[in-house]
Structure formats: C-alpha cells, structure tokens
Design a protein around this nucleic acid. Sequence first.
DNA 1: AAGAGTAGCAACCGCTGTATG
DNA 2: TCATACAGCGGTTGCTACTCT
Length: 384
Amino acid sequence: MGRSPCCDKVGLKKGTWTAEEDQKLLTYIERHGHGSWRALPSKAGLQRCGKSCRLRWTNYLRPDIKRGKFSLQEEQTIIQLHALLGNRWSAIAAHLPKRTDNEIKNYWNTHLKKRLTKMGIDPATHKPKTNAFGCSQQKDAANLSHMAQWESARLEAEARLVRESKLLSSIPYPTKPSFQPPCLDILKVWQATWTTTKNVTSTNGFFTSNGNLQSPNSTLNFSDNMFPVPRTNAGFGANVAIPVMEYVENSKQQVGSGTMTKQTVPNSWKPLGKLNQHDHQVEVGERMDMEVMDNAIQLDDNDNIEYPNPDDAGYIAENSLRHQSFMEGFASILSDDGNNSTSPNGPCYNLDNSSCGGDLEDNRKYWNNILDNVVTFTSGSPIF
DNA sequence: AAGAGTAGCAACCGCTGTATG
DNA sequence: TCATACAGCGGTTGCTACTCT
C-alpha cells in the first residue's frame, strides 16, 4: 500500500498569497519547521495545498533569500552559467547565494535574454545569430560547443553534489546549523591552471589593447601568439580561437607558432572525454554524458572532489589548453564590437541596454569584466 | 483620459526521480 | 516489489503595473 493522497484540491485557495496567509505560514515554520508540507496547511490554518506552501516559502518567505535588483556581478554570473548549463535554473541558483531558481529564471526571461538578443547573441545557444558569413564559423562554433558541453556536464555534476550536500543540511529553520557544502569550485580547477603559470602574460583581461584576445594568464611555454585569434570584419562573432581540441586528434600539429604533441592524462583525473584503454589519451569527438563525467570526477575518502595535482604536466597541458580555448572562443563570440559595417545586428549594446555608441574600448572593458569574472567571481562565495 | 500593448513576476502546472508504506 | 506521495525542477500562465498612442 502506498501513502494516502497528498491533498484533495477541492476548496483549496489558489492565486496570490495575502499578507495574512504569509504571516500564518511564516509563523508556523518559525515555530515548528516545515516538516511535512502535506500536513502543514491544516496545522498552520491555511486553505492551501502543501505544494503551494512549499513554493511560497522557498521562493518568497524564506529568510535567507535576497530580493530586489540583481547586481552586475550576479548578472554576469547568470550569463556565464547559462552559457554552460542552459536552462538548469536550480544548478545556476546553486552558484548564486540567496537567489532562488524561480527568480533567476524570471530575470533571465525578462531581462538578460532580451539584452543578449539585442546584442545579436542567441540567448539559447550563446552564439552569434546566423549571418551571411556564418559558414566559416560553423566548425569553430562546433568546437566551442563541444567544449562548452564538457564544462556544462562538469558543472552539472558538481551542482548535483551541491544539492546533495544541501540535503544533508535540511534541518528545518530556525534550528538549522551553519553548514557549508564541500568545496566544488570547478573554476578553481581552471585557476589552478592559470596559477601554475610558467610563462605569464601580463594582462587584466581577455583583450589586449590592440584588440586581440588573450587568456588571463597564458600557461604554456610557447612563443608569442601561440593561439592567434584572427579578427576580421566578417560580422558579429567573426573572431575565432584556434580549436585546440584538434591537437589531440592529430597527434602532432602546428598550432600558431608552437608545436603541440599529444598529451597523456594522469590516471587520477580524466576530465576531457573518453580515454582509450592503452595510454589514457583523450579521444575527442565522443559525445560526453553524465556517466562519463561522474566517472571523471574522483572523490576522496570524505566524498570531496579530488582535484588533480596541478603540477602534473599532462594535466596542465590538457586543461589549460582546453580552458584557454574555451574561454577564448566564448570571449570571441561576446567580444565583437558590432560596429563594423557588416554586422547584421546593428550597433552593440551594453547590458544596461544602452548603446555603446561605438566605443570599442568601453565594450571591450565591459566584456573583459564579465570574462574575468569567470575566473574570479567565485572567490568569495560560500559555495566555492 | 482611456484603451491597447508590453513588461515584470508570482504562482501554477505537469513531469521526473526518489522515498515510503 | 509495487503503487503512490513527496520534493524538486523547468515551462507556462495570468495578474498587475506601467508605457504608449
């Protein structure tokens, strides 16, 4: 026998909550915790379905949520995470303390989506909208998508772990003790590659003053311009990064002015894709899935994510290249000033919807800011 | 001033995976 | 083992306020 029915919907109130209902729910939960949502409405004297109470509490009444205008950093975070995770609002919300998935979803749909659209970026794919010159970009877009898929899968896996951690701390308010989930900073993995730099290129952003893209810190000992990023006037998003994933396919390939060789991934860390059984070399072109990602993430004895030794040469090479390429590709899509005559989507816009007025430098600074935050925004977050 | 159109957002709906009896 | 409730999630709806004509 299963459980008794949740709640018959006859006679239950729907629609906007009144202040009185809010107070009843708030008072009850403060005194007793929510316990069983099913039983809560009658105990609290509410003519509502338990599900409605839970939604009202989690999205509005909970004391640990922040309401009101989103900060610039929060906007940036949402855009970045949406590029990686898509419409996985709960996963995105896990990286935005005090914001609910519903609020983020609404904000995306009513603000950010429109802004990206105005900038000529497809908000669903975070790629430039198709234009007459799009053919030459297809391969690059595919590579970027491929890498984004990996990052997405990894973020999702970690977001899942965050959720699982939260379950452990689901003691009802207000007796809930302070609790922090284990460190799940995938971006610190990125940073690990940046900070093990042997040949740091000094820059505050992704764009040099002459308009070329650049990683925050270059991690390899290649000669200058190892990843030349052609800037053309072929339209929005015409800048493309050399897809470094190819170097794995072709065991040795000229990349820019540096020559890369096939890298071996350490046994303890296999994040890039399926590894062949012989030498743990990455085989690209495989569609990644959660199972692969789960297998790729190693847990230590305490079920915390075990990050690879950043000193490992193979790890550094694999990850720094992947991340650099991903970031450059991502940056290239976002970076076009949109002022060239062939830009199909008109002038560029800043995120506050104002036209950048053709000020390339301002726009560059703005996107530098966003892209820098990919690496740095998590430093103060309890999640990270 | 008034009606139409639009934006913002709280809340609902329905689906899915998990827990429970 | 199975049926069912629960909880979480993402998509969608509908109400309210605001703007435009």
